[in-house]
Design a protein around this nucleic acid. Structure first.
Lengths: 144, 144
DNA sequence: TACTATCTCTACTGATTAGATAGACAATAG
DNA sequence: CTATTGTCTATCTAATCAGTAGAGATAGTA
């Protein structure tokens, strides 16, 4: 699962992407439009500023705006930033690789083999899509 | 991330798959070969018995064996059983669907749209692979 | 200058979950 | 009938997650 924080991050960035080149957007405006707890959002956006994805302006008329063109922000990058890795197991991470606890030697671990393939497929998709891409929305499922 | 429990489950099932039709395998044998804490493995295997994936035999000469042919156990199924869902956000689960907290209406949520597509790609792969499939193992990455 | 609106940072808290274990119980082969 | 094996429920601990508190910094503006 993506953490709530990662989900908030993605939605906040999508919001900023929609307002790109329209001047800074206030934190409260994002929080309200995206239904994100205000205080939590300050933490999230400050991190994005530190990472360079977002630029902030203080004081009156302040707010946030994307620091890069939406076309240059890939979903894969956002997830890597907030979660460290795209992989579903630590030993299958290509960037933030870590050994798993209580595992077999990596050279013989079939779970790792499988998860590496899966990670690569996920990465292919998430690195193809950027904040600039339109995303088709699906109607909610029927209730069970 | 897959929980440690899910990872143990997959490796335990792979182990049983390797010994399919060779008689019951004792819990200790699995725990030792797969480097899984013994007591924890009892919990895991009991669950798999309840789910019907594994058959147990008590007493002397007892142990565990797969309850289905390996070719009929898909990785997707194992993950759905242990984790509830393949999706990375609750609202993108096709089986165990739940609404997300603090989200937009599902009908307009682009995060959900994206995650549904990703879920479907992941499902396609994980439901194509079964315990019977050979999995290529990759050499460990170089240390950083 | 000083006032106010805005973002920034560090620390903290409370709830939940993950990982693992304990220990009494049940069944089966020999 | 006993040693061996799996079953079940409860429990513990530590980590993580989600969110909040609150003092501080900065910028525009009167």
């Amino acid at each position: 699962m993506l953490s709530q924080k990662t989900r908030y991050t993605i939605r906040a960035l999508q919001h900023l992407s929609d307002k790109y080149r329209q001047g800074p957007v206030r934190l409260d405006a994002i929080a309200e439009a995206q239904n994100i707890p205000r205080k939590f959002l300050t933490v999230i956006l400050s991190e994005m500023v530190r990472e360079g994805l977002v630029i902030s302006h203080r004081g009156r008329e302040g707010g946030y705006e994307l620091g890069l063109d939406p076309v240059d922000i890939r979903y894969g990058d956002i997830i890597r930033l907030t979660r460290g890795s795209l992989a579903l197991v630590p030993c299958a991470a290509r960037n933030a690789h870590e050994h798993c606890q209580n595992c077999l030697p990596e050279a013989e671990c079939r779970l790792r083999g499988l998860m590496l393939t899966l990670r690569d497929e996920m990465a292919a998709m998430l690195d193809r899509m950027t904040l600039a891409d339109p995303i088709e929305v699906e109607p909610p499922f029927e209730e069970a």
